[in-house]
């Protein structure tokens, strides 16, 4: 993959990320988030992680963003101001803290790992078969625990979102 392709993808990723946090309306934020997830999925394909690219599109772009949009549509009618009050000092503080954080991280990344060898590329190019092999052998227990977690999350979501009934 050429560097130009990567640069274009990176620009799109940064632009969509900024769109998420700068949009006034939460619906626009969710749509920018959709674009961001799709760009990241493309990057996964380029980094020899086909399976994860597909999972990213299905789970993040398909399920999570749609869930966000559902909730926004559901509560949007009752909330009048989706646009928020300007608190300039808080925003300035956030930007300053973010800049300091970014400088620290760029320093760490630039200092520690400048001498990476040529990337080896994931075995089997991250195909379903290649990822399934460690997933179902070495990491079988975390995989099963993830299913328990999904069940617990499902029940928790239902219990929390259910309308409270009058207890007699």
């Amino acid at each position: 993959m050429s560097l130009i392709f990567f640069a274009i993808l990176a620009l799109f990723a940064l632009a969509t990320a900024l769109g998420v946090i700068l949009s006034k309306n939460a619906v626009y934020s969710a749509l920018w988030l959709l674009g961001h997830f799709l760009v990241i999925a493309l990057m996964y394909f380029a980094l020899s992680a086909q399976f994860l690219g597909i999972v990213q599109v299905i789970v993040y772009a398909g399920a999570i963003v749609v869930l966000f949009l559902f909730v926004i549509m559901l509560i949007g009618g009752t909330i009048t101001p989706m646009v928020h009050e300007a608190r300039p000092y808080a925003r300035a503080a956030a930007v300053v803290l973010g800049a300091v954080f970014l400088l620290g991280m760029l320093f760490a990344v630039g200092r520690g790992v400048t001498a990476f060898p040529e990337p080896a590329g994931a075995p089997g190019a991250g195909s379903v078969q290649a990822v399934a092999e460690p997933l179902y052998t070495t990491y079988l227990l975390p995989f099963e625990l993830a299913s328990v977690l999904l069940l617990a999350g499902m029940l928790g979501g239902i219990v929390l979102a259910l309308k409270e009934r009058k207890r007699s």
Partner: peptide, 16 residues
């Protein structure tokens, strides 16, 4: 893969 599963659960509970 595991992180994506956890993130999905987190979104469901958080939005609830």
């Amino acid at each position: 893969f595991i992180v994506i599963a956890v993130a999905a659960v987190e979104v469901a509970v958080g939005l609830a």
